[in-house]
């Protein structure tokens, strides 16, 4: 669970980097706090990300796109895939594999998690237009 000082540090980074109306911390005084963020891709599409904070920053936070995404063959992205950088979906939402455990440290900010998920979304959209798997654009997320 995030300490208050860490929470403040995260907010400071987000305030510096992003407009305040695209993110909101939710349920912070509960066992299941999360962060909701809007992500707009370079192609202009908007996605909503849910970043779960119950194990953050000690461990990698789960990040979901708040709907099910489909690959270029219209298969749902709902299972672990190394080529598409996804994990098991939950509640009908695609989960992004945005970080490898072996490289995670507790200094990684939520902003960096957000940027890596933004990157994933760009690669996802590139995949839809070219058919190349996400892994083609990024070897393994580090």
């Amino acid at each position: 669970m995030m300490k208050y000082s860490r929470y403040q540090a995260e907010i400071k980074v987000l305030e510096e980097k992003l407009p305040s109306n695209i993110y909101r911390f939710m349920d912070m005084n509960t066992a299941k706090p999360y962060l909701v963020m809007a992500a707009r891709t370079n192609r202009g599409n908007i996605y909503t990300l849910k970043i779960e904070l119950d194990v953050f920053p000690d461990n990698i936070p789960k990040v979901f796109v708040t709907k099910m995404l489909y690959d270029c063959n219209l298969n749902p992205l709902d299972t672990p895939s190394s080529s598409m950088h996804t994990l098991n979906s939950e509640n009908g939402c695609t989960q992004i594999c945005h970080y490898g455990t072996s490289s995670w440290t507790n200094r990684v900010s939520l902003y960096k998690v957000y940027i890596k998920c933004r990157l994933w979304l760009e690669m996802y959209e590139a995949h839809l237009s070219t058919g190349a798997p996400i892994g083609y654009y990024l070897k393994h997320q580090s």
């Binding site: 000082s5 860490r6 540090a9 995260e10 980074v13 980097k17 891709t41 370079n42 920053p57 440290t105 507790n106 200094r107 990684v108 900010s109 902003y111 960096k112 940027i115 890596k116 933004r118 990157l119 760009e122 690669m123 590139a126």
Partner: peptide
């Protein structure tokens, strides 16, 4: 000094600037 756990000063987080640049390439 910038440790996310024991620093008495301000916590300096990894903000992933290198990925910001990558994002522009799409």
């Amino acid at each position: 000094d910038d440790c996310a756990v024991c620093s008495k000063d301000e916590i300096l987080l990894d903000t992933g600037d290198e990925f910001e640049e990558l994002l522009q390439s799409f």
